[in-house]
């Protein structure tokens, strides 16, 4: 069981690292969204600090949305997904490995670059640890729910906009508690509550979503 998990993980990471270009594109998009936003506001810092958590999370949400279609699309085109579906190993394990590989090449990057960017928005350094924790707990949920949407829209040629309509409503809890934790950290309020809920959402997503993604793939390919 674990050999398939590590095999799929290793394969996807190799593919991702050999196409480093796409990784850089996702990162650049995220940096641009966050870096250019202040140009649209007046220069006094209070506005930026207040809006920084929402901006970081919207930047992450949009970047995740953009990077989602190379989660299953490539394997679907080359017929590898067919092999995954008929493999002896449970599809949920394979899917979990794929989403982990996807998270490592996108979510994890946002967890690292997010806090650095947020300094540009004038957020006190003291709030950075909470920001990292919130992003680290939130991005896996975004990846898992996004994978469900990506699997459901697999057979569609251009699923980008539809994908956002399917998964953004499901991202609301992560956005609320993620940004809520950051806002509390900035003003020094207790952050434990929000982070615990984020942790619960993360656990829920990581354990339940792979089975749903597997079902979505079987439904999506059954045309």
């Amino acid at each position: 069981m674990t050999s398939v998990f590590s095999a799929v993980l290793q394969r996807d990471l190799t593919v991702a690292l050999r196409q480093r270009g796409t990784l850089v594109h996702h990162l650049m998009f995220f940096v641009l969204v966050v870096a250019l936003f202040p140009l649209g506001t007046n220069t006094d810092g209070t506005v930026l600090v207040a809006v920084a958590p929402a901006l970081i999370w919207m930047g992450v949400l949009l970047s995740v949305l953009l990077s989602l279609n190379d989660l299953f699309k490539a394997d679907h085109e080359y017929g590898m997904l067919t092999q995954y579906l008929i493999a002896d190993e449970p599809l949920a394990i394979i899917v979990a490995a794929k989403v982990l590989a996807y998270w490592l090449t996108s979510g994890a990057i946002f967890v690292i670059t997010g806090p650095v960017l947020v300094l540009m928005l004038g957020v006190p350094v003291a709030a950075l640890p909470v920001m990292i924790a919130a992003l680290a707990l939130g991005t896996p949920v975004l990846a898992m729910i996004g994978a469900i949407g990506s699997a459901l829209t697999l057979s569609l040629p251009r699923a980008g906009l539809l994908l956002s309509l399917l998964i953004f409503p499901l991202y609301v809890p992560v956005l609320i508690f993620g940004a809520g934790a950051m806002r509390a950290a900035i003003v020094g309020l207790p952050v434990a509550g929000a982070l615990y809920v984020l942790g619960a959402l993360c656990l829920l997503a990581v354990t339940l979503a792979p089975w749903v993604i597997a079902a979505a793939l079987r439904v999506g390919l059954d045309t």
Binding site: L152, P169, V172, P173, I176, L201, G220
Partner: peptide
């Protein structure tokens, strides 16, 4: 969006199930 009616309906079934699990979570948040 989905071409074949059978697949479309089953995809909507799955989306509804995922959605209904999230409705209380969304309301709570």
């Amino acid at each position: 969006a989905i071409e074949s009616p059978r697949t479309a309906a089953r995809a909507c079934a799955l989306l509804s199930i995922v959605g209904v699990i999230n409705v209380p979570i969304i309301h709570y948040s």
